Simulated scan of single mutants.
Amino acid sequence: MESDELEAREWLISCITIPLSTAIILANLVIIVGILYNRQLHNTPNYFFLSLLVADLCTGVALPFIPRMALERSLNFHTCLLVHTFPNFLFLSYLFNLVMVHYERYLCIVSPLHYSQCWVHRCFPVALLAAWVPPLLYASLPAFGWNEWSQDEINVNGTLNQTVGATGCAVDPLDDNGMCSYRKVFPTAYIYLEVYGLLLPAIFLIAGMTGRVLWITRKQLRDICKLHRAGVRDQASVGEQRLNVRYAKCVAAVSLVFLLCWVPYVIYVNVTLKWLKADGKSQNSTTHIILCCTGIGSMAIIPFILGLANRQYTDPARKCC
Rank of each mutant, 00 (worst) to 15 (best):
E2P: 04
S3P: 00
D4S: 13
A8L: 08
W11Y: 09
L12V: 12
I13K: 03
I13M: 11
I18D: 08
L20W: 06
A23E: 04
L29A: 08
N43E: 03
T44F: 03
F48G: 10
L52G: 06
V54R: 00
V54E: 00
A55C: 14
L57K: 01
C58K: 02
T59P: 00
V61R: 01
V61H: 01
L63Y: 01
L63V: 03
P64E: 07
L71F: 15
L71S: 12
R73V: 14
L75N: 09
L75E: 13
T79C: 12
L82T: 12
V83L: 07
T85H: 05
L90F: 03
L95S: 12
L98D: 08
R105I: 00
I109Y: 05
L113F: 03
L113P: 00
S116I: 12
V120S: 15
P125R: 10
A127L: 03
L128D: 04
A131W: 00
V133M: 06
F144R: 08
W146R: 08
N147C: 08
G158C: 02
V171R: 13
P173V: 02
L174M: 12
N177R: 07
N177D: 10
M179F: 10
K184F: 11
V185E: 08
V185C: 07
A189C: 11
I191V: 15
L199I: 15
I203E: 05
G208H: 03
G208I: 08
V213C: 15
I216C: 09
Q220F: 02
R222E: 09
H228K: 13
R229T: 02
R233F: 15
R233Q: 12
D234Q: 13
Q235H: 14
A236I: 13
V238Q: 12
V238L: 11
G239Y: 02
E240W: 05
R242Q: 09
Y247D: 05
Y247Q: 11
K249P: 00
S255T: 09
F258R: 08
L259R: 07
P264I: 09
Y268M: 15
W275A: 11
G280K: 07
Q283V: 10
S285M: 02
I290A: 14
C292Y: 04
S298K: 02
S298P: 03
S298I: 01
I301W: 00
I302P: 00
P303A: 10
L306D: 02
G307T: 04
G307W: 02
L308H: 09
A309V: 01
T314Y: 08
P316L: 05
C321H: 07
